[in-house]
């Protein structure tokens, strides 16, 4: 593989169009293991699409992405990229956790069943092992007493914490968060961010699309600012948030800060 060995995520000149609308216009980004990368940008800037290409929920039109040294969605042979079969893509995704804005918990399954579903069916773990692991994860997100509850019986913040536990149950190498607090009532945002901060402190590699500037400042190793399908600037939060070099970054930050 052409990906440098020290990067967890390597994104090279990625382009993506929806019809005639070019949402990603040449994205290059590397994320080192254990780092937290926060992606900021106005809506429509392509940040969610970029995140979704990393686990191949969206196919890229050009360029490539690798996670943990493996191409995502393709197999390379010489100068050709062969599209992977769905089954192989699904297997790749078990190494990449994804947390959605709207949680997307399975409403007909209990909290515990939501968490053990993928370890049992995708990784073939014995049910017992999966349940024991799920109970530990529930403890970690502070929801030990909710194992038998259904998602509809939980608050938004609790649901999102379950969704994080569900993503962690696969022991992924990388966690992707797509605006994880945007659908929450303001008073519930904190509990989700706290769980995410804990994950960051134990060295989980995370890419977080969010509007929470405070979270970016406190937790991020790298802040990436995107606009109109391009990365405008990136660097440590102290640089990008406090001394942005680009006019567009300044304009965006002045609106959200």
């Amino acid at each position: 593989m052409s990906a440098p060995s020290d990067a967890m995520v390597e994104i090279r000149s990625v382009h993506k169009k929806f019809g005639s609308l070019e949402v990603l216009r040449g994205i290059d980004l590397s994320v080192r293991p254990g780092e937290v990368t926060v992606v900021l940008g106005p809506s429509g800037s392509g940040k969610s699409t970029l995140l979704r290409t990393i686990n191949h929920l969206e196919k890229v039109d050009q360029g490539w992405i690798s996670v943990d040294g493996t191409l995502v969605g393709y197999r390379r042979d010489g100068n050709k990229l062969y599209e992977l079969r769905e089954r192989e893509v699904l297997r790749q995704r078990t190494k990449i956790g994804f947390v959605f804005q709207n949680f997307n918990l399975f409403p007909h399954l209990t909290v515990l069943e939501n968490i053990i579903e993928a370890p049992v069916s995708a990784l073939g773990r014995p049910r017992k092992t999966a349940v024991a692991a799920a109970e530990k994860l529930l403890e970690r997100v502070g929801l030990t007493d909710k194992a038998t509850a259904y998602p509809a019986q939980l608050s938004g913040g609790q649901q999102q914490r379950v969704a994080i536990a569900r993503a962690l149950a696969l022991e992924p190498r990388l966690l992707l968060f797509d605006e994880p607090t945007s659908a929450l009532d303001p008073e519930l945002v904190g509990e989700v961010l706290d769980v995410m901060k804990d994950l960051a402190h134990v060295g989980t590699t995370m890419i977080v699309v969010t509007h929470e500037i405070g979270f970016a400042r406190e937790v991020a190793d790298t802040v990436v600012f995107m606009d109109e399908g391009r990365i405008v600037e990136q660097g440590p939060p102290a640089d990008v948030l406090d001394h942005p070099t680009q006019e567009r970054t300044r304009a965006f930050l002045s609106k959200v800060l």
Binding site: N55, L57, E86, R87, L90, R91, Q92, R93, T94, I96, F98, F100, N104, L105, F106, E117, A118, S121, A122, R166, A167, L170
Partner: peptide
């Protein structure tokens, strides 16, 4: 479907 796909659950 997206959540199931993102979790790698077989088709």
């Amino acid at each position: 479907l997206e959540a199931a796909a993102a979790l790698g659950i077989p088709k």
